[in-house]
Each structure stands twice: as C-alpha cells, then as structure tokens.
Amino acid sequence: MANNAIPRDFLKNVLQNGMGRYVCQLQRITFRFCKSHPGSRHMRDFIENHLLDFTQKNPGVVVYLQPRRHRPPSIVAEFLNGRRESMEMMRKEPQEICKWAEYMRGRSGVQIVNMIHNNHTETPSTQGIWHPFMFRDSETAVAKFPDPKYSAVRETGKTATDYVLEEFNNKE
C-alpha cells in the first residue's frame, strides 16, 4: 500500500479534533437565493421556517443570507482550514436543505479524496481474506453460551478464578 493513502492533513487536523474539546470546523455558511424566482421557493421556505432553529443549535457558526437576482439557490460553507465548498440547492425540499446544512456543519473541511488505488492483478491472492474467526469451529456460530463443550471448566474442573487464586498462593 502506498504511503500517501491517507492525507497528512486528515491525520493532523481531523484526528486531533476532539482531544480536549470539540471545535466546530464550519466557520461560516452562506445561503444564496433569489427573492422572486420560483426555483428558490424551497430555499425561502427553509429560511422562513428552519433557519432560526439551525442558528440556535449552532451559535459558533456565522450565517449569512445573500439574495441574488435570477440565480439558482445554493449553500456556501467556509471552514477553519480555509476551504470553501458550495452546493446547488435547486429543487431541494426544505427538509433536505436542513440535512445538507447539518452535513456541512459536521464536515471537517478536509477535501474528500478517493483512497482506493486502481491496482489490478490477474492472479488474486489464494489465501483469501483473513478475519478473526477464520480458523474457528463453525459450530460456535450457532452454539448457546455458556456451552460445556467449549468451556475450559469441562477439562480441568477449575474456573478462571481458581487459576488466579492458585497462582497467587504459589507466589507466596
């Protein structure tokens, strides 16, 4: 696997967010709409009915409303790392606009990159994919535990507590 599979910005910024306190990475969000065009009807409905709830839940996010004549509605999100993302909201219902605003609020601002490499081989691995239960008996999948067949108590008559007490007494 290549060393550049995970972006360094991701490891440096995203994984450290939450160590200590959570800092919302969305700095400001702009809702662009037209006051008269029918294509912005749902965005205007969102602004009238749902925007106040969004702003009360997220006091650290600056919200702008930008009316633009004869342009499709959109959301522009600006993050703390300087990135800007915009999404067209044409023909999206107010509930869907709420979901996209929450999506932008929850994002880290790091660019989404495809981490799947286009590697292909004509001879795939004959070993198969390993998993923790690979060499276990398949009967354990349907067994009701505790089952005396798979219990260590069956063989020796001792429980784990007995083993611990025995080791403790032997050391003294």
Score class of each variant (00 low, 15 high):
M1V: 06
A2Q: 12
A2H: 10
N4M: 02
N4K: 07
A5M: 13
A5R: 12
P7Q: 10
D9Q: 14
D9K: 07
F10L: 14
F10A: 05
L11Q: 09
L11K: 13
K12Y: 06
K12L: 09
V14T: 03
Q16V: 06
Q16Y: 13
N17K: 01
N17P: 00
N17H: 01
G20R: 10
Q25M: 02
Q27H: 04
Q27K: 07
R28I: 00
T30G: 00
F33M: 02
C34W: 08
C34F: 06
C34Y: 08
K35G: 10
S36M: 05
P38E: 02
P38A: 01
P38L: 04
G39R: 09
G39L: 13
S40G: 05
S40Y: 02
R41A: 15
H42N: 15
H42R: 09
D45R: 14
F46T: 01
F46D: 01
N49D: 00
L51C: 05
L52G: 07
D53G: 07
D53Y: 06
F54S: 09
T55A: 10
K57A: 15
K57T: 13
P59V: 00
G60L: 11
G60C: 09
V62E: 14
V62C: 12
Y64G: 05
L65M: 03
H70M: 15
R71M: 10
R71E: 09
P72A: 15
P73M: 01
A77C: 01
A77K: 00
E78V: 01
F79L: 05
L80G: 08
N81M: 03
G82R: 02
E88C: 15
M89H: 02
R91W: 13
E93P: 05
E93L: 09
E93M: 11
Q95P: 11
I97K: 04
A101V: 05
E102M: 12
Y103M: 09
M104N: 03
M104H: 04
R105E: 04
G106A: 08
G106L: 04
G106T: 05
R107W: 08
R107E: 11
V113F: 01
V113S: 07
M115G: 07
M115Q: 14
I116W: 10
H117T: 14
H117L: 14
H117I: 15
N119A: 09
T121N: 04
S125M: 08
T126A: 08
G128W: 11
G128S: 06
G128E: 08
G128H: 03
I129G: 04
W130A: 08
W130S: 07
H131I: 05
H131A: 02
P132W: 03
F133H: 09
M134S: 06
F135Q: 10
R136C: 15
T140P: 01
T140K: 11
A141W: 06
A141V: 11
A143L: 04
A143T: 08
A143Y: 06
F145P: 05
P148H: 01
K149I: 10
K149Q: 13
Y150W: 13
Y150D: 01
Y150P: 01
S151A: 09
S151W: 04
V153P: 03
R154I: 07
R154P: 02
K158M: 10
T159Y: 03
A160F: 15
Y163W: 15
Y163M: 12
Y163P: 03
V164F: 07
E166C: 11
E167F: 12
F168Y: 12
N169W: 14
N169Y: 14
N170Y: 07
N170W: 02
N170T: 06
E172G: 13
E172L: 15
